[in-house]
Structures are given as C-alpha cells and as structure tokens.
C-alpha cells in the first residue's frame, strides 16, 4: 500500500516557538480569535489534533466551524492566538504555502474545477509537485472506483457525491499528512454519506490525520477519536467521540431526531 504521509516537499519540523506548548501535538490551536470586519466569528478557540487521529468539529450553522478550518488551512488569519503545526507557527502562512507542509484542505461546498476532466482535476491536486505521483494516483482511484469509471468526464457533470469524492481525491493527490474536510456529507444521500465516511476511515488508516467538520454529529462522532463542539465561536464541549455521542446534551442539541426515532 502506498504511504500517503510521506510528501517529498515536507521540510524538517522547526524547533518549537517560545511560549508555544510542548510540540507533542501535531496541530495545536491556541486561543484564536478570527474576525470578519467587526464580527468576531471565533472568540478564543483552542483545541489540538494528534498524529494519526480523526478529530471532529461539531456545531450548528454559523457556529464558526468553517471559519476555524479556514484559519487552520491558511485561507484566513487569526487576529489573536496562535496555530502550531509540528512545532512550527503557521498562522498567517497562506493556504498555497501550507500545502507544502502537508496540510490539504477540502473546502466546504465541493469545489471541483467544473470544466476540467476528472483526470485533470486529480492532476491539479498534485500541482505542488513537478509531476504527479502515479502510485498515489492509482491509490486514489482504488479508493474511489467511481472516479476511475468517469476519468475522462468533465467534473461539472458529475453527481454531487462524485464531486465530493473528486474533491477529496484531489486533496489526497497533494500527499497530505493533515487533511481538513469541511462538511463532506453536506447535501448527499445517506448511502453516499456512508461511503464517504468509509473512505475517510480508510484514508486515516493509511496514516493521514483528519480534522473533520460536520453537522452530521452521529456519524462524525462514530468515526472520530475525539470531538469538539463549537457554539457561536466558542468551544463548549470536548471529549472522546464515544463519550460525546453518549452525552445527553449532545443528543438533545444535535441528535434530536435520533432520540425521537429510537
């Protein structure tokens, strides 16, 4: 099996910055505040992700999940606080540079290149390398046999689920060590959602650390090692996936339907 974790472009970890916590965690988000103009979207959020984990970020619409992930991936910069990745301060480094450290982001809303073929989309995912690694490509197509079938099709003509698969596959082409997924299940049929979560598990088993943003709390927590719950820009709860899933408050707030159903 191909090892997705070893990107040739990844530099040696730098020594820990003064004041940063001991570099035991892969990703350490420390008390970040993020603003959209006058709006404070994140009001001091702290969490961490360890090597090899799947960590879920849960929360209602507008809680700040996407904002958190964009800040980690470098699309936004925090006004306060710090983000440390493998001992190196990364807040303020733009997204296209962070990818060279092995952080790949699958943004919310299935951003594929609609007029490129599936093949070309995957190739774009490996843009940071001089040429794409054919082993990784074969592995990605193994994970998503559907993409293999549609390899010459224009991405814009794929179904929603296929586009999401393509977006994840494209991120994998960048050989991530930390994969950021923003609501991969949004708007998809339950069967497809199950498939996608299955693949996330496989990707994680290959050694990729995953930070997963989800509204689909039940499935996300079943998958995740640990979870954090965001509410209006603050973390209100955290714990192991199973514990959170068992927590009454979570069940009441996010899994209302399922209590009623069971």
């Amino acid at each position: 099996m191909t090892d997705l974790t070893k990107g040739p472009g990844s530099p040696e970890p730098l020594p820990a910055v003064d004041g940063a916590p001991a570099a035991s965690h892969m990703l350490d988000v420390d008390d970040i505040e993020v603003r959209y103009g006058a709006i404070r979207a994140l009001k001091g959020v702290s969490f961490h992700v360890d090597q090899g984990e799947i960590v879920a970020l849960l929360g209602a619409n507008g809680a700040g999940k996407t904002t958190t992930q964009k800040t980690v991936s470098g699309m936004m910069r925090p006004s306060l606080g710090s983000i440390t990745y493998e001992g190196q301060r990364i807040d303020g480094i733009p997204a296209h540079s962070l990818i060279n450290l092995g952080i790949c982001h699958v943004p919310e809303g299935r951003h594929v290149f609609p007029r490129m073929t599936v093949d070309e989309n995957l190739e774009m995912g490996a843009f940071r390398f001089k040429r794409q690694d054919m082993d990784v490509r074969a592995h990605v197509l193994d994970l998503f046999p559907r993409l293999q079938e549609r390899i010459k099709q224009q991405a814009g003509t794929l179904s929603g689920g296929e586009q999401q698969m393509l977006a994840i596959g494209r991120a994998l082409m960048g050989k991530p060590r930390l994969l950021l997924l923003d609501e991969p299940s949004m708007g998809l049929a339950p069967l497809i959602v199950a498939q996608i979560f299955d693949i996330i598990r496989q990707v994680n088993a290959d050694g990729v650390t995953v930070l997963l943003v989800e509204q689909n709390a039940a499935q996300a927590l079943a998958l995740a090692n640990r979870g954090y719950v965001l509410e209006t820009g603050e973390i209100v709860m955290s714990g192991a996936g199973k514990d959170l899933l068992a927590d009454d408050r979570i069940r009441a707030a996010y899994l209302g339907e399922e209590i009623a159903a069971s």
């Binding site: 991936s73 733009p94 296209h96 540079s97 951003h111 290149f113 843009f127 960048g174």
Partner: peptide, 9 residues
C-alpha cells in the same frame, strides 16, 4: 478556492 486549496498562489 479550489485552486488555492490545490496549492496555487
């Protein structure tokens, strides 16, 4: 957005 996520500046 996708371009940026793919490492394009």
């Amino acid at each position: 957005v996708a371009a940026q996520a793919a490492g394009i500046n």
